[in-house]
Nucleic acid binder design. Structure first.
Length: 570
RNA sequence: CGGGGCAUAGCGCAGUCCGGUUUAGCGCGUUUGGUUCGGGACCAAAAGGUCGGAGGUUCAAAUCCUCUUGCCCCGACCA
């Protein structure tokens, strides 16, 4: 491709509404154009990179016996009513009516559609297991888009769904998919770590997320460097030693105006670990009190999952009054008529300081079982930096990550409601067991930049680069020899099936180099009077120090370098 | 949905508080001609705006008032 004819545009200035590195680079390099909040057009440069990623994904999906299909973007509400999700999913699903008044929706995920396809085809155990996948646009009316391609409303996703006769088979296949995922990301030049995750609204029995480690990530990851324990903060656990001692007599203390754990523990000269706090949430019709050791935070994802609800809000003062709770001094002691959930940390520690449920008073030496009790003792705490690994006791590290893929064991959530069944050897009918596997393609593209590019320079992995080679000819107007050499090199690589971009524009060297930095090809060949005088073409591989290669040896050299670059991505 | 910010030429911005010397300006980019040519070159000329939209106040509005739309950031939320 000749750059003089190519459809693209680079921008020198920083785009004002881009914050993340990947967003700035994608705009400045002329990869994407925003059309609306979270909705982008892709220019040729971006589309080439996306196609390369998609190709890698297809190859790996095919290797684990997947069949590519295409499921509709627009679906009737009736299909989603079969699983109840037309009701269950909130406003992130865009709904509308067609001309006949029929309720329709834009697909945000495709369990219903694929299950509908599966039940149409599958009758027998002989047809199982099978996996179907697609690469397709999804729309989610995200309440908050951010970061360019990192969190958008319209996006390309690879989603795959597997179908099995039993859970053992699902587990086996899940492992294959897991390995395939790691393969895909490493072929794309992106280091990911997989972490156990929350199953969320998908339901099911297990889930892993694939995370690109980056400061700009939206998820918090808990890692143990010693034993390899990895989990999303949403599900992570820590090993804790709880204060166990003989129960002491409880006793009220005057704590005027001291509401926070910090203030109270400072005032009474005790550690926050010796206190507990009570938080009241409104969960729709009722309110629940949650009690946790004072130094810990309630993990709202864990709590929501335990309660099997989606929306969790702090109770308003008015509601607290209704239950006789004094804000700032809330306590589970003498709690009436309110559901009480106790975190393990509060249940297993002795002699904690609690609010007295009385203005300006706390109570010392409160003990679970004696002073308050509940049948609901569960883990609803978040892991803090520096806590110990649940498996090996080593100090845990906290880092941020961008979720680029996830895999779920779905079970029969969709097959049972949609009657997707098969007959086994004995003629017995059973629900098909399902798994599902997603990758956000655009987010993957952006994550690669987020992790490995510099502020003014993109360095694509060769597997993803829009063009493997960029050829730059300098000052061609002045030096015929440069022009002729560059032209013949260009032809040579074209005939050898390289993807090469040739900067044949009439522009100054700096201008061309800076554009090349945004186009980000891993192999850069520069031809100029200077390079010719030194014996040939200047070659730069992955921003390393440039070297001069004789024109006659250029093809072999580049071939070898290309192979090396690819082999690094295995 | 809560909090904060922004909207003026293709892009980045100044001007807005305090209405009138502004015929709405600057930088980048674009077009034409010339000179340059190894890290965003230089000179000259030119094109490009109903100041996000609607209504109002006023002799006079980019500037003041009301409403409205879009976008960004933080939080809530997120298969």
């Amino acid at each position: 491709m000749r750059l003089s004819k190519y459809f693209f545009k680079t921008i020198k200035e920083m785009p004002s509404d881009a914050d993340l590195k990947s967003h700035k680079l994608l705009i400045r390099g002329g990869y994407i154009k925003q059309v609306s909040a979270g909705i982008f057009s892709y220019l040729p440069l971006a589309l080439r990179a996306l196609h390369k990623i998609e190709r890698i994904i297809r190859e790996e999906m095919d290797k684990i016996d997947g069949y590519e299909v295409n499921l509709p973007v627009v679906m009737p509400a009736s299909l989603w009513n079969e699983t109840g999700r037309y009701q269950d999913v909130g406003e992130e699903m865009l709904r509308f009516t067609d001309r006949t008044g029929r309720k329709m929706l834009l697909g945000m995920t495709h369990e219903e559609a694929v299950t509908d396809m599966a039940r149409y085809v599958i009758n027998s155990y002989k047809q199982l297991p099978v996996m179907l996948y697609q690469l397709q646009t999804k729309f989610r009316d995200e309440p908050r888009v951010r970061g360019g391609l990192i969190r958008v409303r319209e996006f390309i996703m690879k989603d795959a769904y597997s179908f099995h006769t039993d859970y053992e088979d699902l587990d086996r296949y899940y492992k294959r998919a897991y390995d395939a995922y790691h393969k895909i990301f490493s072929r794309c030049g992106l280091n990911v770590i997989s972490v156990s995750s929350d199953v969320g609204m998908m339901g099911g029995t297990g889930a892993d997320e694939f995370m690109a480690v980056a400061e700009s990530g939206e998820d918090t990851l808990i890692l143990c460097e010693k034993c390899g324990y990895k989990a999303n903060r949403e599900v992570a656990k820590a090993k804790r030693n709880y204060k166990k001692e003989e129960m002491l007599k409880s006793e009220e203390v005057h704590t005027p105006g001291l509401k926070s754990i910090e203030e109270v523990s400072k005032f009474l000269k005790i550690s926050p670990e010796s206190t507990m706090k009570a938080v009241v949430y409104n969960i729709g019709k009722e309110a629940v009190m949650c009690v946790i050791r004072g130094d810990l935070e309630i993990n709202e994802t864990k709590l929501r999952n335990y309660l099997k609800i989606k929306v969790l809000q702090f109770s308003e003062e008015e509601e607290l009054n209704k239950y006789g709770i004094v804000p700032g001094f809330a306590s589970p002691i003498n709690l009436k008529k309110m559901r009480l959930i106790v975190d393990e940390s509060a249940a297993d520690s002795s002699n904690l300081l609690s609010g007295a449920n009385k203005k300006d008073y706390h109570v010392k030496n409160i003990n679970f079982g004696r002073d308050f009790t509940s049948k609901e003792v569960v883990d609803i705490s978040s892991v803090k930096e520096g806590e110990k690994c649940i498996k090996c006791g080593e100090k845990l590290k906290i880092t941020r990550g961008i979720e680029v893929g996830n895999i779920f064991k779905l079970g029969t959530k969709y097959s049972s409601t949609m009657k997707a069944r098969y007959l086994d050897e004995t003629g017995k009918e059973s629900d098909i067991i399902m798994g599902c596997y997603g990758i956000g393609v655009g987010r993957l593209l952006a994550s690669i930049l987020e992790v490995s590019s510099e502020d003014n320079k993109i360095s694509w992995p060769i597997s993803v680069a829009p063009f493997e080679i960029e050829l730059i000819a300098l000052a061609t107007e002045k030096d015929e020899n440069v022009k002729n050499t560059a032209e013949s090199i260009y032809e040579m690589f074209i005939t050898n099936d390289f993807s090469i971009l040739y900067d044949d524009r009439k522009a100054s060297p700096g201008f061309k180099f800076n554009d090349a930095d945004l186009i980000g090809s891993p192999l850069r060949i520069t031809i100029g009077t200077k390079s010719l005088n030194e014996g040939g073409a200047e070659v730069m591989v992955n921003n390393e120090k440039p070297i001069i290669i004789k024109t006659s040896e250029l093809m072999n050299f580049i071939k070898q370098k290309r192979d090396e670059l690819f082999s690094q991505l295995k």
